[in-house]
Design a protein around this nucleic acid. Sequence first.
DNA 1: AGCTAAAGATGATCGCCATCATGAAAAAGT
DNA 2: ACTTTTTCATGATGGCGATCATCTTTAGCT
Lengths: 208, 208
Amino acid sequence: MIAIMKKSMARMEKSEMKVSREQMAENRRRILEAASRLFREKGFEAVGVAEIMKALGLTHGGFYGHFSSKDDLIVQALAHAVGERNGATLSLPAYLEEYLSPRHRDNRAGGCPISGLAADTLRQAPEARAAVTDGVRVQLDWMSEKFPEATEADRRRRAIGSWSAMVGATILARVMVDPVLSEEILTETLAWINDGPGQQAPALSEPQ
Amino acid sequence: MIAIMKKSMARMEKSEMKVSREQMAENRRRILEAASRLFREKGFEAVGVAEIMKALGLTHGGFYGHFSSKDDLIVQALAHAVGERNGATLSLPAYLEEYLSPRHRDNRAGGCPISGLAADTLRQAPEARAAVTDGVRVQLDWMSEKFPEATEADRRRRAIGSWSAMVGATILARVMVDPVLSEEILTETLAWINDGPGQQAPALSEPQ
DNA sequence: AGCTAAAGATGATCGCCATCATGAAAAAGT
DNA sequence: ACTTTTTCATGATGGCGATCATCTTTAGCT
């Protein structure tokens, strides 16, 4: 077994790195990408396997060569989307502002998969919920590091309260039919997070 | 048996106004009630018309005598659930504590329809989103009255931030597979809303 | 008491969708 | 070059669910 692998590896080196294997991995990645976007946009139930494949110019038949079921795809797509950690490169203040912006509110397909899919994931398999759980854990750890409070407990509390508010505000702002109320929810939640519930939290300022 | 029924019918002729009409109105109400609970529990898509009717001991056929379509039912059920204003009788501190409790987290079918259905309502008809919008408006007005801040703007900001955090924390706590993290989200969000980071915010205390 | 209309039951219909069976074509391995 | 896999396409299959047509019963009226 190992010998065989070594042989094929050796052969790969000189020949031109198999086309179809890479194509297949690439296709799998593109399925995950398309599925992740479509799920965020329309929800798990409203998106069919055929629609996802069509988004890549493929047909529904090949799907089960990549995933054992739609539920399997849901788990993988969630893990993929959650694992991307899109905001980790920004400073915390910039991240908060971007997250609670109309731009992010209106960008369901490309936005945060947690605010976009957490509620839908409730009724999915435990593996799917586990993917979201991991994402939340990572998110909270990251945010906890960035807040300025002195003690770890205070930072974590602020991270949890702020993150809950970010997720809730995004969901609420998206569902509002009144654009004024929608924007108010975003801007006031941002201010509330930055200033603290009682206006005494250390304000966050953009690092120069 | 029949004779008895007829006699009692005859008696209510003038006053009681048709028994079956009342039955029908009562059945309609029960459909809304059952639908609202089932939707909160499983989501709009996962609940069929037949399942709702079966929950009342009826069959699917009679449904379209009450509602013109499932979408119509969704709108009516949302308006019905949102209109009930379940927490308005509690003090704000008691309401916050109840809302962010494991009890409420685990009571999807009977819990707050906004945290339970807001995300699902995103992809529903504008009338459905309007029902949720109204519910949020009423909720924010109610909470804004109850916070102790001096200015209306400060109270409203705190209401919006807190409500966003309540909705987000409930959704997140429900999806977590790790019960420790789930409870931590609830208790820390509650603490953050009440006390802020350094316990310097005007604390909410239960009125005696 | 008899007539009419409506509520609910029964039983299609129709479309959508996940999943599978099979086949063709091209790549990987010998 | 030949054989074996593997990837994707085509075309079922089967189930589920919304909606509708029809029938039965009974309330509501005269």
